[in-house]
């Protein structure tokens, strides 16, 4: 097993873990974190799978950098919305999805 493939498999596991968290956790902060986990998993797969030939492929690096920028801005936006929801309702969960504060 090449290191690249190892990274890719780790990435896939992270993605699944994140997916599990995104769907099953009710606290919105946990959901946002789970989304970040999924994103990181994706990037690992992208970089890992592309390294199989032994040579370094520059394209995935550029892609992942862009992806990270997108993920960071999405996270910031999501956190802003969560905070505003908390200010308005005093809760950090979506209505109808559990009651933990």
């Amino acid at each position: 097993m090449t290191p690249g493939l190892l990274y890719a498999i780790t990435g896939a596991l992270l993605f699944c873990l994140g997916l599990y968290g995104l769907l099953l956790h009710t606290h919105l902060l946990r959901k946002v974190l789970a989304f970040n986990l999924m994103g990181s998993g994706c990037f690992l797969v992208l970089v890992g799978l592309a390294q199989r030939g032994g040579q370094v492929d520059p394209v995935p690096h550029a892609l992942v950098l862009t992806g990270i920028v997108v993920a960071v801005s999405a996270t910031a936006f999501a956190l802003m919305l969560v905070r505003q929801l908390y200010v308005e309702t005093g809760r950090a969960t979506l209505p109808g999805e559990g009651d933990d504060p």
Binding site: F35, M38, C42, V45, L49, L85
Partner: peptide
């Protein structure tokens, strides 16, 4: 928020597909 989470989930599933294709 519901829309955002659905949209992010959707695009990450898509991105994983892109990674596999690449």
């Amino acid at each position: 928020l519901r829309y955002l989470l659905a949209a992010l989930l959707g695009s990450l599933l898509y991105l994983l597909g892109v990674a596999l294709v690449y």
